[in-house]
Design a binder for these strands. Structure first.
Lengths: 100, 100
DNA sequence: CCGTTGTGTAAGTCATTACTTACCGTAAAT
DNA sequence: ATTTACGGTAAGTAATGACTTACACAACGG
Protein backbone atom coordinates (compact mmCIF):
# COMPACT_ATOMS: atom_id res chain seq x y z
CA UNK A 1 0.00 0.00 0.00
CA UNK A 2 3.03 2.27 0.21
CA UNK A 3 4.57 4.01 -2.78
CA UNK A 4 7.58 1.67 -2.86
CA UNK A 5 5.49 -1.44 -3.54
CA UNK A 6 3.55 0.46 -6.19
CA UNK A 7 6.80 1.45 -7.87
CA UNK A 8 8.23 -2.07 -7.94
CA UNK A 9 4.87 -3.42 -9.11
CA UNK A 10 4.66 -0.99 -12.04
CA UNK A 11 8.29 -1.46 -13.04
CA UNK A 12 7.75 -4.75 -14.88
CA UNK A 13 6.58 -4.31 -18.51
CA UNK A 14 4.10 -7.17 -18.67
CA UNK A 15 2.71 -6.30 -15.25
CA UNK A 16 2.25 -2.78 -16.54
CA UNK A 17 0.49 -4.23 -19.58
CA UNK A 18 -1.88 -6.07 -17.24
CA UNK A 19 -2.50 -2.88 -15.35
CA UNK A 20 -3.13 -0.85 -18.49
CA UNK A 21 -5.60 -3.42 -19.74
CA UNK A 22 -7.80 -2.58 -16.77
CA UNK A 23 -7.64 1.07 -17.73
CA UNK A 24 -10.62 0.70 -20.04
CA UNK A 25 -12.67 -1.18 -17.48
CA UNK A 26 -12.95 -4.30 -15.28
CA UNK A 27 -12.09 -7.69 -16.73
CA UNK A 28 -11.66 -11.34 -15.78
CA UNK A 29 -8.30 -13.09 -15.65
CA UNK A 30 -8.86 -14.80 -18.99
CA UNK A 31 -9.87 -11.56 -20.66
CA UNK A 32 -6.69 -9.95 -19.36
CA UNK A 33 -4.46 -12.83 -20.36
CA UNK A 34 -6.03 -12.91 -23.83
CA UNK A 35 -3.72 -11.04 -26.20
CA UNK A 36 -0.81 -10.94 -23.78
CA UNK A 37 2.30 -12.95 -24.74
CA UNK A 38 2.41 -14.80 -21.39
CA UNK A 39 0.46 -17.66 -19.89
CA UNK A 40 -2.60 -17.30 -17.69
CA UNK A 41 -0.82 -18.34 -14.45
CA UNK A 42 1.75 -15.62 -15.10
CA UNK A 43 -1.09 -13.11 -15.27
CA UNK A 44 -2.45 -14.44 -11.99
CA UNK A 45 0.92 -13.90 -10.32
CA UNK A 46 1.12 -10.37 -11.68
CA UNK A 47 -2.40 -9.63 -10.48
CA UNK A 48 -1.40 -10.81 -7.02
CA UNK A 49 1.50 -8.35 -6.96
CA UNK A 50 -0.73 -5.54 -8.21
CA UNK A 51 -3.35 -6.35 -5.58
CA UNK A 52 -0.77 -6.29 -2.77
CA UNK A 53 0.38 -2.90 -4.07
CA UNK A 54 -3.13 -1.51 -3.79
CA UNK A 55 -3.34 -0.99 -7.54
CA UNK A 56 -6.15 -3.44 -8.35
CA UNK A 57 -8.95 -5.16 -6.49
CA UNK A 58 -10.86 -8.33 -7.27
CA UNK A 59 -14.44 -9.41 -6.84
CA UNK A 60 -15.95 -12.86 -7.41
CA UNK A 61 -18.50 -13.09 -10.21
CA UNK A 62 -19.73 -16.64 -10.33
CA UNK A 63 -16.77 -18.91 -10.86
CA UNK A 64 -14.71 -16.06 -12.25
CA UNK A 65 -12.99 -13.12 -10.56
CA UNK A 66 -13.40 -9.65 -11.96
CA UNK A 67 -10.39 -7.37 -11.53
CA UNK A 68 -10.56 -3.59 -11.63
CA UNK A 69 -8.38 -0.57 -10.93
CA UNK A 70 -8.01 0.36 -7.26
CA UNK A 71 -7.03 3.89 -6.30
CA UNK A 72 -4.95 3.71 -3.05
CA UNK A 73 -1.81 2.47 -4.78
CA UNK A 74 -1.81 5.18 -7.42
CA UNK A 75 -2.70 7.75 -4.79
CA UNK A 76 0.29 6.83 -2.62
CA UNK A 77 2.60 7.02 -5.62
CA UNK A 78 1.15 10.31 -6.78
CA UNK A 79 1.47 11.89 -3.32
CA UNK A 80 5.10 10.83 -3.03
CA UNK A 81 5.95 12.34 -6.41
CA UNK A 82 4.08 15.53 -5.58
CA UNK A 83 5.94 15.95 -2.30
CA UNK A 84 9.26 15.22 -3.92
CA UNK A 85 8.45 17.68 -6.66
CA UNK A 86 7.68 20.51 -4.25
CA UNK A 87 10.73 19.95 -2.06
CA UNK A 88 12.98 19.72 -5.09
CA UNK A 89 11.70 23.07 -6.32
CA UNK A 90 12.26 24.70 -2.94
CA UNK A 91 15.81 23.39 -2.70
CA UNK A 92 16.48 24.40 -6.26
CA UNK A 93 15.44 27.96 -5.47
CA UNK A 94 17.55 28.02 -2.33
CA UNK A 95 20.51 26.70 -4.26
CA UNK A 96 20.03 29.25 -7.04
CA UNK A 97 19.86 32.16 -4.62
CA UNK A 98 22.98 30.95 -2.87
CA UNK A 99 24.76 31.00 -6.23
CA UNK A 100 24.79 34.81 -6.48
CA UNK B 1 12.75 10.40 -20.71
CA UNK B 2 9.46 8.50 -20.85
CA UNK B 3 7.52 7.37 -17.81
CA UNK B 4 8.50 3.73 -18.26
CA UNK B 5 12.22 4.37 -17.82
CA UNK B 6 11.45 6.55 -14.81
CA UNK B 7 9.41 3.73 -13.26
CA UNK B 8 12.10 1.09 -13.75
CA UNK B 9 14.75 3.52 -12.50
CA UNK B 10 12.88 4.30 -9.29
CA UNK B 11 11.97 0.67 -8.63
CA UNK B 12 15.34 -0.31 -7.17
CA UNK B 13 15.75 0.52 -3.46
CA UNK B 14 19.37 1.66 -3.51
CA UNK B 15 18.79 3.67 -6.67
CA UNK B 16 15.88 5.30 -4.89
CA UNK B 17 18.22 6.00 -1.97
CA UNK B 18 20.62 7.71 -4.36
CA UNK B 19 17.76 9.74 -5.76
CA UNK B 20 16.47 10.73 -2.33
CA UNK B 21 19.94 11.84 -1.27
CA UNK B 22 19.76 14.52 -3.93
CA UNK B 23 16.45 15.66 -2.52
CA UNK B 24 18.21 17.99 -0.07
CA UNK B 25 20.50 19.43 -2.74
CA UNK B 26 23.25 18.76 -5.30
CA UNK B 27 26.13 16.46 -4.40
CA UNK B 28 29.17 14.76 -5.89
CA UNK B 29 29.40 11.02 -6.48
CA UNK B 30 31.53 10.47 -3.41
CA UNK B 31 29.18 12.48 -1.23
CA UNK B 32 26.30 10.36 -2.48
CA UNK B 33 28.15 7.08 -2.03
CA UNK B 34 29.20 8.07 1.48
CA UNK B 35 26.82 6.42 3.93
CA UNK B 36 25.31 4.07 1.36
CA UNK B 37 25.98 0.33 1.81
CA UNK B 38 27.27 -0.11 -1.76
CA UNK B 39 30.51 0.73 -3.52
CA UNK B 40 31.16 3.94 -5.43
CA UNK B 41 31.08 2.31 -8.89
CA UNK B 42 27.64 0.94 -8.05
CA UNK B 43 26.51 4.49 -7.31
CA UNK B 44 27.94 5.61 -10.65
CA UNK B 45 25.93 2.95 -12.46
CA UNK B 46 22.77 3.97 -10.63
CA UNK B 47 23.39 7.60 -11.49
CA UNK B 48 23.73 6.64 -15.13
CA UNK B 49 20.32 4.95 -15.05
CA UNK B 50 18.78 7.95 -13.29
CA UNK B 51 20.29 10.32 -15.82
CA UNK B 52 18.95 8.32 -18.76
CA UNK B 53 15.54 8.44 -17.11
CA UNK B 54 15.64 12.23 -16.93
CA UNK B 55 15.61 12.17 -13.15
CA UNK B 56 19.04 13.69 -12.47
CA UNK B 57 21.53 15.79 -14.36
CA UNK B 58 25.25 16.22 -13.90
CA UNK B 59 27.63 19.12 -14.24
CA UNK B 60 31.44 19.07 -14.09
CA UNK B 61 32.98 20.96 -11.18
CA UNK B 62 36.72 20.65 -11.55
CA UNK B 63 37.61 16.98 -11.53
CA UNK B 64 34.32 16.09 -9.85
CA UNK B 65 30.80 15.86 -11.22
CA UNK B 66 27.96 17.45 -9.32
CA UNK B 67 24.63 15.65 -9.60
CA UNK B 68 21.26 17.26 -8.95
CA UNK B 69 17.57 16.53 -9.37
CA UNK B 70 16.22 16.97 -12.87
CA UNK B 71 12.51 17.54 -13.42
CA UNK B 72 11.54 15.96 -16.81
CA UNK B 73 11.58 12.40 -15.51
CA UNK B 74 9.33 13.09 -12.56
CA UNK B 75 7.10 15.21 -14.75
CA UNK B 76 6.60 12.39 -17.26
CA UNK B 77 5.79 9.98 -14.46
CA UNK B 78 3.43 12.40 -12.77
CA UNK B 79 1.57 13.13 -16.00
CA UNK B 80 1.11 9.45 -16.73
CA UNK B 81 -0.32 8.81 -13.27
CA UNK B 82 -2.59 11.83 -13.53
CA UNK B 83 -3.97 10.72 -16.88
CA UNK B 84 -4.43 7.19 -15.64
CA UNK B 85 -6.17 8.50 -12.56
CA UNK B 86 -8.65 10.57 -14.51
CA UNK B 87 -9.48 7.89 -17.06
CA UNK B 88 -9.90 5.31 -14.32
CA UNK B 89 -12.39 7.56 -12.55
CA UNK B 90 -14.37 8.14 -15.74
CA UNK B 91 -14.54 4.43 -16.51
CA UNK B 92 -15.46 3.68 -12.92
CA UNK B 93 -18.39 6.08 -13.15
CA UNK B 94 -19.51 4.64 -16.47
CA UNK B 95 -19.30 1.16 -15.05
CA UNK B 96 -21.23 2.14 -11.92
CA UNK B 97 -24.03 3.73 -13.95
CA UNK B 98 -24.28 0.67 -16.16
CA UNK B 99 -24.73 -1.41 -13.01
CA UNK B 100 -28.22 -0.08 -12.28
C1' DC C 1 56.21 16.05 -14.77
C1' DC C 2 54.54 12.68 -11.42
C1' DG C 3 51.35 11.66 -7.90
C1' DT C 4 46.69 12.33 -6.12
C1' DT C 5 41.82 12.85 -6.39
C1' DG C 6 37.45 11.96 -8.61
C1' DT C 7 34.89 9.43 -11.79
C1' DG C 8 33.24 6.27 -15.61
C1' DT C 9 33.47 1.60 -17.71
C1' DA C 10 34.42 -3.72 -18.37
C1' DA C 11 34.09 -8.27 -16.98
C1' DG C 12 32.38 -11.59 -14.03
C1' DT C 13 29.47 -13.33 -10.15
C1' DC C 14 25.48 -13.86 -7.42
C1' DA C 15 20.78 -12.97 -6.20
C1' DT C 16 16.33 -11.82 -7.69
C1' DT C 17 12.35 -12.68 -10.31
C1' DA C 18 9.46 -13.61 -14.25
C1' DC C 19 7.87 -17.56 -16.75
C1' DT C 20 6.45 -22.35 -17.71
C1' DT C 21 4.08 -26.82 -16.74
C1' DA C 22 1.51 -29.48 -13.55
C1' DC C 23 -1.77 -29.79 -10.06
C1' DC C 24 -5.73 -28.60 -6.94
C1' DG C 25 -9.91 -26.28 -5.38
C1' DT C 26 -14.43 -23.98 -6.50
C1' DA C 27 -18.64 -22.98 -8.91
C1' DA C 28 -22.10 -23.50 -12.39
C1' DA C 29 -24.22 -26.95 -15.90
C1' DT C 30 -26.02 -30.93 -18.16
C1' DA D 1 -22.99 -36.64 -9.63
C1' DT D 2 -19.76 -35.85 -13.45
C1' DT D 3 -18.26 -32.69 -16.41
C1' DT D 4 -16.76 -28.24 -17.76
C1' DA D 5 -15.08 -23.55 -17.00
C1' DC D 6 -12.25 -20.44 -14.23
C1' DG D 7 -8.58 -19.32 -11.38
C1' DG D 8 -4.88 -19.75 -7.62
C1' DT D 9 -0.58 -22.18 -6.14
C1' DA D 10 3.90 -25.18 -6.26
C1' DA D 11 8.12 -26.37 -8.14
C1' DG D 12 11.64 -25.77 -11.25
C1' DT D 13 14.09 -23.09 -14.87
C1' DA D 14 15.71 -19.21 -17.44
C1' DA D 15 16.66 -14.51 -17.76
C1' DT D 16 17.27 -10.13 -15.76
C1' DG D 17 19.91 -7.04 -13.09
C1' DA D 18 22.58 -5.35 -9.07
C1' DC D 19 27.09 -5.66 -7.09
C1' DT D 20 32.16 -6.32 -6.79
C1' DT D 21 37.03 -5.85 -8.29
C1' DA D 22 40.12 -4.14 -11.69
C1' DC D 23 41.31 -0.90 -15.03
C1' DA D 24 41.41 3.56 -17.75
C1' DC D 25 41.02 8.45 -18.24
C1' DA D 26 40.68 13.57 -16.91
C1' DA D 27 41.75 17.50 -13.69
C1' DC D 28 44.46 19.68 -10.28
C1' DG D 29 48.69 20.17 -7.03
C1' DG D 30 53.30 19.36 -5.62
Amino acid sequence: MTYTTALTALADPTRRAVFEKLRSGPASVQQIANGLPVSRPAVSQHLKALREAGLVRDEPRGAARIYSIHTPGLRALRDWIEGFWDEALVNFKAHAEKQE
